[in-house]
Write a protein that binds this DNA or RNA. Structure first.
Length: 571
DNA sequence: GCCGTTTTCGGCCCGACTGTTTTCAGTCG
């Protein structure tokens, strides 16, 4: 049983308990535990087996439940609890605007136990008979049902970033707007986004809100108040806007950036110091006098912490690290000297190697790795050994024409289903660097897939395992791997693991990156670019690296080409 | 259900918007 599955069970328990109107703090305890479990870098199975189950928010009771889930694969308490309410109620609760109270009311009074029954009842005007529900609510429920029908997975970070930019550009044109920035999970650079949060400072909030809710891309207005409004824009993405005065910018940005768990911890710290933090500022609890709020740095300072980068704000140790002055110096885009995974027209890319090199130089890089596919990957025009040798010759020719740039010869070699490689060693040894990847047999058992990759890592020419989990966000789940074994093998064989920057991949993900750093594994960034503009995906990979607490020294891309080659040749 | 330089019991972050209300509950972030 995976951490994610256990977290999901705890969330379902929380939802059921909430519908049953149990103690809210008990509900919150389950949600909090679920959150912390999801953020763990290690498998609960390992933690339970080694009796190291020491997770914040998990006390004696929940630890027992985790142990039961890990050892038996099920939880009696959960199975019994599920019997007490119809399963459809949990789905009803996912409709925007409907929470536990309404769900319970609908079931108790009208025996509504599924979204489809709710839709019929609303259409037949049966809901307005209930206390507190009138025409408008009924209408909102129908619209909410439409929304969840359209909703498909979470939005990719790359999509959210570009939508956010469009909105910011529009708002920044207004004279009444002082600052306009993106906050929320987009600012934290989560790999997928639920909605986009925008913060604006202005002394004329009404004007800003009016303009925002009437932007051309707005399809529907969900809420519009004095300082806060929500809309659905093209692409069915929810965008929330908050407008505060300039004196509150830092406090509001901190509040709106979250995460929720991080904010709660910061506010608890404030409380212990006799302070209160809200989106308007930091206040003395007794006198209600404002003591900070203009900048985020100020806000953190009042609670005795140094500034914490947005990507770290998940309450996964960053607050303790900030208190100890032990935060990592996170890698930044300008530290990156190379792109370590690029395709050309030789296989399935769209540009010649020369043009890709020109584009990479324009990014400010000193070198790049050309890694076209190997022969088995026929759909992607994989190179035969003969073609690969021709490619190496061309790269050598090109390199002679550069002054301060270098192309490294490589290939993205298939790891075949038995763990052998798609090219023989006598070809691999001709390359500067060898990337290896799984492109088939995703449904194999965990042991087999893990074995394939570890076997590939044993090969002395393989330097980087690229997109190690093979997932495509919202399309294809990661294949099953024993990541601890992969990491151990990576460390033992001096093989690096890639953070693939392709928007749908972002693989390794942030949590695995953080674990890899803890274990001291080498990591690399590669955009997997097949076209010029895709080189910009590097920004997304850097975001994952930052969320995984990486510093400059943890990434091969921050080395010069000589240092890089020295390092990988130590294998 | 968790947790502890105020504590092993009694707290648990804080505020905006909506729709229904005559002052607030429910929902959301």
């Amino acid at each position: 049983m995976m951490n994610k599955e256990i977290a999901d069970i705890f969330r379902q328990i929380a939802d059921i308990l909430e519908i049953k109107d149990e103690n809210f703090f008990r509900v919150r305890a389950y949600r909090k535990a679920a959150q912390n479990i999801e953020n763990l870098t290690e498998d609960l199975i390992v933690l339970v087996n080694e009796k190291r189950l020491d997770v914040p928010g998990v006390g004696v009771d929940l630890a027992g439940k985790i142990e039961e889930l890990v050892t038996t694969g099920a939880l009696k308490f959960f199975e019994e609890l599920k019997k007490t309410i119809p399963p459809g109620l949990l789905e009803i609760m996912t409709i925007p605007g409907i929470g536990p109270k309404t769900t319970k009311l609908l079931f108790d009074k009208l025996k509504i136990d599924s979204v489809s029954k709710l839709e019929i009842a609303a259409r037949e005007d049966k809901l307005s008979s209930l206390p507190g529900l009138k025409e408008k609510t009924q209408e909102n429920i129908l619209q909410g049902i439409e929304l969840i029908k359209q909703r498909q997975g979470r939005i990719l970070l790359s999509t959210a970033l570009s939508v956010a930019q469009k909105i910011l550009d529009a708002l920044k044109k207004l004279k009444v707007v002082e600052e306009a920035v993106v906050a929320g999970s987009v600012r934290r650079r989560k790999e997928t986004i639920h909605d986009i949060d925008i913060l604006v400072t202005s002394t004329k909030p009404q004007t800003v809100t009016d303009v925002f809710t009437s932007l051309p891309i707005v399809k529907k207005i969900l809420a519009k108040g004095d300082t806060k409004s929500s809309v659905i824009v093209e692409g069915d993405i929810q965008v929330d806007l908050r407008v505060v005065g300039p004196e509150s910018f830092g406090a509001a940005l901190n509040y709106l950036t979250g995460s929720k768990a991080h904010n709660i911890r910061i506010r608890e710290l404030a409380k212990k110091k006799g302070l209160k933090i809200n989106e308007y500022g930091v206040f003395r609890e007794k006198t209600n006098r404002i003591v900070a709020g203009k900048t985020e740095h100020e806000v953190y300072k009042t609670v005795g912490l140094c500034y914490i980068e947005p990507e770290l704000r998940e309450d996964t140790g960053e607050i303790e690290a900030a208190a100890d002055n032990a935060l990592p110096q996170l890698v930044v885009l300008t530290d990156i000297k190379s792109d370590l995974h690029i395709h050309s027209r030789w296989s399935d890319g769209t540009l010649s190697i020369a043009d890709m090199a020109k584009a990479a130089k324009a990014q400010g890089y000193k070198y790049m790795v050309v890694s076209d596919h190997s022969q088995s990957l026929k759909v992607a025009g994989g190179l035969t050994p003969k073609r690969l040798k021709e490619q190496i010759d061309e790269i050598k020719r090109l390199n002679r024409s550069f002054k301060d740039f270098r192309i490294l010869c490589s290939a993205e070699v298939d790891i075949k289903s038995d763990g052998s490689l798609d090219f023989d060693d006598d070809i691999l040894k001709e390359l500067d660097v060898v990337l290896a990847a799984v492109h088939s047999g995703f449904k194999q058992a965990k042991e087999q897939l893990t074995g394939r990759i570890t076997r590939a890592m044993q090969n002395k020419y393989v330097n980087i395992i690229v997109h190690p989990f093979g997932r495509l966000i919202n399309e294809r789940p990661a294949y099953e791997l024993d990541f601890e074994k992969i990491l151990q093998a990576a460390c033992d064989t001096n093989t690096a693991l890639e953070i693939n920057c392709y928007p749908k991949r972002l693989d390794l993900d942030d949590i695995h990156v953080k674990r890899a750093k803890e274990k001291g594994a080498m990591l690399s960034l590669g955009t997997d670019s097949h076209a010029q503009e895709q080189l910009d995906f590097m920004e997304l990979g850097v975001a994952v690296a930052r969320r995984g607490w990486l510093e400059k020294k943890n990434l091969l891309n921050c080395l010069s080409s000589d240092e890089f080659l020295d390092k990988i040749r130590k294998k």
